[in-house]
């Protein structure tokens, strides 16, 4: 029973991190049809910025978090203009894969040059240490914080997409780009804004998840496969799909690690193959259609 509780808490927290990062990828994939393999690198950059803010400059955790998100978004906007705009559209997955792998390599090399190959931490504030009691059980505060932030992200995105002008335009452009353009929606600005949203989510997840996905230069390459898996199962552009897929994969992976310690990844990818074999467009996309 204790193990089960541990699996659920850790699995959900892990799933929330996967969700926050992956949903950014999912949104850009859904709208701009771009497979951004550098998405993990963006999350990593934010993690390093937050780490530097805390350890190098001695700034509080919250300030470091905001600074990391702002820095990452601002730093990647020129990339959107110079690089990504050329590879939008589903016609050319190969160019997308290669260009974004290239960008990832450059970022990995840059991070290593600036911060070295060793593991970096983002020290948690006292408020996030210790445990919090939920009924008869107690869970680590940091896990609870991560879960709460994940839930807030789901709600925030829901509000953004369902209740704002931006969201209406974005959904219209996902459904039918040509029609949206004909209706006078300025797709270029929409793309830029969506790209910034996606990068911002990556940055948020990168900082929050530093405890679960440790920061080191190969982070960008090591975890991108996980993020892609969530998007593939959840369906591109599908927020609830991403959330469900991330939680499911997070729990399956954590359960695998707890119960059969050496077979964690194996379960993860076996589940992935089963799901994609049955629903090639993602589990949730496949059911909705």
């Amino acid at each position: 029973m204790e193990t089960l509780f541990g699996i659920v808490v850790d699995g959900v927290a892990y799933g929330m991190i996967l969700f926050i990062i992956s949903v950014g990828l999912s949104v850009t994939l859904g709208l701009m049809r771009v497979v951004n393999l550098a998405h993990g690198a963006f999350a990593m950059v934010a993690g390093y910025v937050a780490s530097y803010a805390a350890q190098g400059l001695g700034l509080p955790y919250a300030v470091g978090l905001v600074a990391a998100i702002l820095f990452t978004v601002l730093a990647t906007l020129p990339l959107e203009k110079l690089l990504y705009r050329r590879i939008y559209g589903s016609a050319n997955e190969l160019a997308q894969v290669l260009l974004t792998i290239g960008l990832t390599f450059v970022i990995v090399a840059g991070i290593n040059y600036l911060f070295g190959p060793t593991l970096k931490r983002i020290p948690l504030p006292d408020a996030l240490l210790g445990t919090v009691a939920i009924g008869p059980k107690s869970i680590p505060v940091h896990r609870a914080f991560v879960i709460a932030m994940g839930a807030a992200t789901v709600l925030g995105l829901w509000w953004l997409l369902e209740r704002t002008d931006f969201g209406i335009k974005l959904r219209a452009a996902v459904d039918d780009p040509n029609m949206a353009a004909a209706l006078g929606i300025r797709t270029e600005r929409l793309y830029t804004a969506t790209f910034a949203l996606g990068t911002g989510l990556a940055a948020l997840g990168g900082v929050l998840g530093a405890e679960l996905l440790p920061l080191e230069p190969y982070y960008a390459i090591r975890y991108i496969v996980l993020f892609l898996a969530v998007v593939a199962v959840g369906g591109a552009g599908n927020i609830l799909g991403s959330a469900a897929a991330a939680l499911a994969l997070g729990i399956v992976d954590t359960a695998g690690k707890y119960l059969i310690p050496s077979f964690g990844e194996f379960f993860f990818y076996a589940a992935l193959i089963l799901i994609l074999f049955r629903w090639p467009h993602g589990f949730f996309q496949g059911r909705a259609a």
Binding site: L98, I101, G102, T104, F105, G110, Y113
Partner: peptide, 19 residues
């Protein structure tokens, strides 16, 4: 890491200028 920088730039250059 120099190698990664080089190959990364090279890849981007190939995609952009020498498909």
């Amino acid at each position: 890491f120099h190698w990664m920088l080089f190959i990364g730039l090279f890849l981007m250059g190939t995609v952009l200028f020498l498909p």
